[in-house]
Design a protein around this nucleic acid. Structure first.
Lengths: 210, 210
DNA sequence: GTCTATAATTAGATAGAC
DNA sequence: GTCTATCTAATTATAGAC
């Protein structure tokens, strides 16, 4: 996995608590309302500071967005890498199951990541360009390589790995990305551990069988 | 299916060509850029008219959005209903396969629908409220009822239908929702008939087995 | 570092001519 | 119906005090 670049990614350097509160608020609002829909005033308000302070800590709205995105992707990579590190000696199928499971759990914990990917990758643009090349491509590489190995071993149906990638990244996170809808529509709380477990089970059942 | 209200939905009344061009441009831009990200000036520009004309044909930006959304959902319901109408006497499993397949084909043809659902259902708001109650809930009802029947007959694994719903609405459209990303990342053209067919096959294999 | 005040830009909507 | 011109409000970013 190290050849694909997943592991050697920097964690954010700053530990300024104000800066961190701004980043957390920015991630929430950007992911819910999209880049244009989120206003810097509201981000500041949720972080408990005034709006011009964002321009002190970050050069622009755009740079604030990038910093917030770097944060969540760092968390995802950290979750996947540390999950896999605890599995030396375990067979490929079980490893894959557990990594996919970890991916679903992460998607439930931080649906913001998939919300932002969906917002920015619907159309070409400078933010999509940055997002794909910096963050999404390494994950795509690692994932499709894993799926290819599993398919060769007969653990997955004969489906091209590109399609498998979009099936898994769709089936896993969508319930959590559409959390408010899910609550209204299905009467399920997508933040409850039971629901999250059930969804991870469901996705793994379809992917790998019972 | 008629009890769930899928069939008795009005088709849009107007046939004014200018109005239709505005609606088409609005659907594209709203779905790519989100409600706030799409400007009425750009919608007007793509439709080949001036910005104030939108306020002549539609009371507000909000009403324009609703009209555009009514349009795509009308197309989806029309596609699903007419697909099923051509299948009297066919067994339940084959019918389900073909309806899911039709859903994937529609998602490839009109990814705008899922882009808009994703944008609006990430957070509660007046547009999510309207969208869910008017359009999404009837589809959710019809879909989960179908899945419940198939599960009883043993055609689907023992997974709660709510999870099945989010697995299918995630796995089917995501490749097309993220069309520009897919092109860059996987080198596949998600508008090409071959790719669309392959994805429909992959989703059906994933869902119903070979 | 964090604030108040404000500049510069841009958005959606309206008035009124044709 | 469609246009030009313009109003009002809201946005990001900057200046400068503390």
């Amino acid at each position: 996995m190290s050849e694909t670049g997943l592991a050697n990614r920097p964690t954010r350097p700053s530990a300024d608590p104000t800066r961190e509160r701004i980043l957390a608020a920015a991630l929430d609002l950007f992911s819910e309302r999209s880049f244009e829909g989120a206003t810097t005033r509201e981000i500041a308000g949720r972080a408990g500071v005034t709006q011009p302070l964002l321009n002190y800590h970050f050069r622009s709205k755009d740079e604030l967005w990038r910093a917030a995105v770097d944060g969540v992707f760092g968390e995802l990579v950290e979750a996947l890498v540390s999950r896999e590190e605890g599995l030396s000696g375990v067979d490929d199928l079980t490893t894959a199951r557990l990594v996919v499971r970890e991916f679903v759990l992460f998607s439930a914990r931080r649906p913001q990541l998939h919300r932002i990917i969906t917002q920015e990758c619907k159309a070409d643009g400078p933010r999509m360009d940055w997002l794909v090349e910096r963050h999404v491509r390494p994950l795509y590489q690692a994932t499709t390589e894993r799926f290819a190995r599993l398919r060769q071993q007969g653990y997955l149906p004969d489906v091209p790995v590109e399609h498998l990638y979009y099936i898994v990244t769709g089936a896993g996170p969508t319930m959590f990305v559409l959390g408010p809808e899910c609550r209204r529509l299905a009467g399920l709380d997508p933040t409850s551990p039971d629901v999250i477990e059930a969804h991870a089970d469901a996705v793994c059942t379809f992917l790998f069988g019972r």
